[in-house]
Amino acid sequence: MSSNGVMIDLRGITRIYDMGAVQVEALRGINLEITGNEYVAIMGPSGSGKSTLMNLIGCLDTPTAGSYRLDGQDVSRLEGDDLAKIRNQRIGFVFQTFNLLPRADALRNVELPLVYAGIALKERRARALEALERVRLADRADHRPNQLSGGQRQRVAVARALVTRPSIILADEPTGNLDSKTGEDILGLFEELHRDGNTIVLVTHEATVAERAGRIVRIVDGLVA
């Protein structure tokens, strides 16, 4: 992981949704650079295109035009399994709705990305436990999501994002489903991770949340404002 070079390099990114009769231009030419170990908040009202941007940065989707270099690799033309591999190795997702597997306990949720990375069971378990320790939830390793509080669930999700030692941690409204005190805990956790050397991209529409980041990028009508 190069911690000081350009980690995310977006140039002339557009994303057009083909809705049959109409075409919707969600992103209209985004240029954005994020360096290693930066903590950036992407802000914008709903409908601004920030979710589309997040999907592109997270390699869940690909741009209609433009180039995206992630940690030096052009990922804008990759598809299917190649994108899955990038997500697995380079991206750690934290979602607003946690997105944990309900039938798996915390440990199994955290080790899931390592399963798809093909890591052997023993190492997988050790690293998942390590990640749970990092978010101070090692004592809840055998709890299922419905046995955990909202804040705990989000910490499990953060541990899952960390476990592959990704290039970036991409958080989409991570405090959106939490009360303010728990949300504060999670934001504190992100700050710790940032101090540890992680690159964090946080998508939000809340100014108070965005202000915690080192830099705020505002998106308005599909463009960087």
Binding site: L60, G80, Q89, N99, L101, Y116, A117
Partner: peptide
């Protein structure tokens, strides 16, 4: 479907 989405987000390939 949601579970499949989660699995794909964290890196599951088609074959998985």
């Amino acid at each position: 479907v949601k579970e499949i989405g989660i699995r794909k987000a964290v890196g599951a390939r088609r074959s998985h």
